[in-house]
Structure formats: structure tokens, C-alpha cells
């Protein structure tokens, strides 16, 4: 049994899911991201770190089609994603959360999740108006799937509440639930621990691992909390001024001179 499991996870680790090559974009004269490379295996849990303004969120925006890359290539499961609109990227299997929470504040929690799930239905206007049996069945399936997800994350009792009435920590959790509702194969988390207290951060670290295993998604994570990143990420990419300055395991990254320089400031050569 153990052998089988090991074999499976070894096989999964070899399989490349998201392949990013030489991705780049400039805004006017500012080279926001240059030559960004990433090979994310299925079920991988990678981190993306760097000082403020390093271009981390820009990388997310490039991956999800909000910005169109000016150079490089981007593919998911061998399928080219360059030139895709954001909703097409999501349909292909990349979901994300936002650094500043972007829930739909005046929609219920259930609707927030259901909305993300409806990527899997092809509704018709006429059957919506007539509320045909097929329509009812689809809506019921959507609702059941959304409730299942909420139950996993223990928010099922608040399904009818408006998203804006949730506490900050719950809103962050709902953002992740909503992203998972699109049934992604890659999940991009943009600073999921921002604003959480130490206990909540510990719980988050735990649940990120669980999400990866339970939903079989590969996760790429932007985070400023180094303890969290070093603790859970298998590999880390460090960006500074849009350039990848280091890539490797947490140990490698922690001991890299360039990384230390980027965070703490370089020691002048002549000192």
C-alpha cells in the first residue's frame, strides 16, 4: 500500500503542470518582470517571495491573463495559455486569490462560491426563464457542490450571510474556497497570511497543505511571512526588481547571499 502511494506521488512529482518560460512585461520604461521561469509539478507547493515592489503580484497577473506578457511562454498541461483572457485561464484550471480581498461583498457566501462553480455549466436564457427541469437540476448541483465546499471549511452555517459581514479571517478563507470552487489544477495564493495573527497563521499553514492533498492542486504562494513560507514550501523563487535572483529549496534560499542582500541591503564592496 505504502509502495503504491509512494509510487503515485513520485509519478505525480515528475509530471510538469505549469510551465513558464522567460515571461516578461514592462510598463513604459519599467521592466516589471523579466525572464521569469517556473516549472510547477502537479501537487507541488512553491513559494514566490521578494521585497515589496519586486513584481510578485505582477507575475500572478501575467499568469492569470490580467496582463498580457510581452515575452516568453506559458502553458498548463502542455496547453498554451498565452493570449487567453482571465476567464479562459480560469476555465483552463488556474484559480487565484487576491492580495486585497476581492470578494463580492453584497452577495451571500453561498452565491460567492456558487458563482465560481458555474464555470462548469452552460446555461441557456430560455431554460432560465422557463425554469426547466434541466435548469433546476443544474442549479441544485451547483448549490450542493458549493455547500459541500463550505462544509469542508466549516462555513456552511453562514451560507446565507453577505460576504461583507464575515470577519477578516473568514473573508480570507472564503477567497480560497471560492478559488477552489472553480476546480483548479493550479491555485495561486496572493499573501494568504496577510493580517492574520500567529495562531491563524499556524492554522493556515496546516490548511494549505491539506488543500493541496485533498483537492490535488499545485499551489504557488506569495507570502511575506518567512516562517510560513520556509515551513511549507518545497521550493522557493525569489524576485527582486522583477528579476529572479534565486530559486531552490528553503535551505538554499535562506543561505543565498543575493537574497540576504535583497532583504537586508547589500554590504558595500569597499567596506
Amino acid at each position: 500500500m505504502n509502495q503504491v502511494l509512494e509510487h503515485r506521488s513520485a509519478g505525480a512529482a515528475q509530471q510538469t503542470l505549469l510551465e513558464v518560460k522567460d515571461l516578461g512585461i514592462s510598463f513604459g520604461g519599467l521592466k516589471a518582470v523579466q525572464n521569469f521561469n517556473l516549472t510547477l509539478p502537479s501537487a507541488g507547493l512553491y513559494g514566490l517571495i521578494g521585497p515589496n515592489g519586486a513584481g510578485k503580484t505582477t507575475v500572478f497577473n501575467l499568469l492569470t491573463g490580467i496582463y498580457q506578457p510581452q515575452t516568453g511562454s506559458l502553458s498548463l498541461n502542455g496547453k498554451n495559455l498565452l493570449g487567453c483572457k482571465p476567464h479562459e485561464v480560469t476555465a483552463a484550471g488556474i484559480a487565484r486569490t487576491f492580495q486585497n480581498i476581492r470578494l463580492f461583498p453584497n452577495l451571500s457566501i453561498l452565491d460567492n462560491v456558487r458563482l465560481a462553480g458555474q464555470i462548469r455549466i452552460r446555461p441557456k436564457l430560455v431554460s432560465t426563464f422557463l425554469r426547466t427541469n434541466g435548469y433546476r437540476e443544474q442549479e441544485a448541483a451547483l448549490k450542493a457542490q458549493a455547500m459541500d465546499l463550505l462544509e469542508i471549511f466549516d462555513l456552511q452555517d453562514r451560507a446565507e450571510d453577505l460576504a461583507q459581514n464575515l470577519s477578516y479571517g473568514h473573508q480570507r478563507r472564503l477567497e480560497i474556497i471560492r478559488a477552489l470552487a472553480t476546480k483548479p489544477s493550479v491555485l495561486l495564493l496572493d499573501e494568504p497570511a496577510a493580517g492574520l495573527n500567529p495562531q491563524e497563521k499556524l492554522a493556515l499553514a496546516q490548511s494549505i497543505r491539506q488543500i493541496r492533498d485533498r483537492f490535488e492542486v499545485a499551489i504557488l504562494l506569495i507570502e511575506h511571512d518567512m516562517q510560513l513560507v520556509m515551513d511549507i514550501c518545497e521550493r522557493i523563487v525569489v524576485l527582486d526588481h522583477g528579476v529572479t535572483i534565486c530559486e531552490g529549496t528553503p535551505q538554499t534560499v535562506q543561505n543565498d547571499e543575493k537574497v540576504i542582500a535583497a532583504y537586508l541591503g547589500a554590504i558595500a564592496d569597499d567596506a
Partner: peptide
């Protein structure tokens, strides 16, 4: 009313609430 309570309506409301997030959730805004 039926539009509002359907997946079409939710998609429309999501465009009103936050267009970027709607796109990221797979809505063709």
C-alpha cells in the same frame, strides 16, 4: 426575477460587485 436568481444573474451581479474578481472566477464579463 428568474434571471436575477440564476447563474446569469449571479454573473451580472458579480460584474457589478467586482469586475476583476468576476473574471478571475471564470465569468466572461
Amino acid at each position: 426575477y428568474r434571471l436575477k436568481r440564476s447563474s446569469f444573474g449571479r454573473a451580472m451581479l458579480s460584474v457589478r460587485e467586482d469586475e476583476i474578481a468576476a473574471q478571475a472566477m471564470g465569468i466572461n464579463t
